[in-house]
Design a protein around this nucleic acid. Sequence first.
DNA 1: TTTCTTGTTAGAAC
DNA 2: CGTTCTAACAAGAA
Length: 279
Amino acid sequence: MPELPEVETIVRGLKEKLPGQKIRQVKVNLDKVLRENKEEFASLLTGLVFQGVSRRGKMIIFDLSEDWSLVVHLKMTGQIIYTRPEAPVNKHTHLVFDLAKGNQLRYADLRQFGYLILLKTDQVTGLPQLAGLGPDALEISSQEFGKLIASRKGAIKPLLLNQSFLAGLGNIYSDEVLHLAQIHPLQPAGSLTSAQIERLYKAIRQVLTRAIKLKGSSVSNYVDSDGERGSFQELHQVYGREGKPCFQCGQPVKRLKLSSRSTCFCPSCQKLKALDRQE
DNA sequence: TTTCTTGTTAGAAC
DNA sequence: CGTTCTAACAAGAA
Ligand SMILES: [Zn+2]
């Protein structure tokens, strides 16, 4: 599931390889991942040169020559892989870019939820999918975070998943962050004490930074731009661990359903009524 | 066969 | 209008 750490890992990998490379040919196997028809998409891109690669939240932005940009969302199962052309082709490969140096950039997506948008560079920031994003989870300041949290009434877990509030966290990292911060997923955001908000802010940075170091979490089919799995899943404290003992206290991890998403947490480490009274 | 999983969004409810 | 919530989407695993 590409969330911020996985997307960041992919972007860092591609930054080393793509800039300066010309697109020699584009093959489209499934045009439903595109906005325009496949012929138009291929002809617009052919001959362009990759320049920068960046991300905002979970969105990837490729900047190309002639003021074109390609914005990509991988949703749950999307992959972008830079590879030798003779490497075996994933069954769900929907796009193949042949690059001037002989390598290929391949886009694959098992569930076909991801998409690409080709547009002029000056249109990128106005794109609703980008303009609607809140501050990036790794860029927001502690002060701004505290201000945003305080004005919200809903439960903290669904709020962390809301990309227009904060961009980058998904189901895995929201659960992991709340466990590290020792905050119950149902606790109303506006009821968090300043000490809890501080812990939450630090937990977000710590969990995401550590996950990026380990190249993300491979819980389903996630691989980075080299086709390599991440290893942060081995350090998950609660996600996917229902019924197993909490590594901190030994109590079994519980799961509940929150806005039709599963949420794993430790009822002992993450109490609903703040145990840390006044500090 | 049915249920579950995921991120985002349209649309409804408040 | 802002916020919050639900259903829908696809395809494979259990
Ligand atoms: Zn615990």
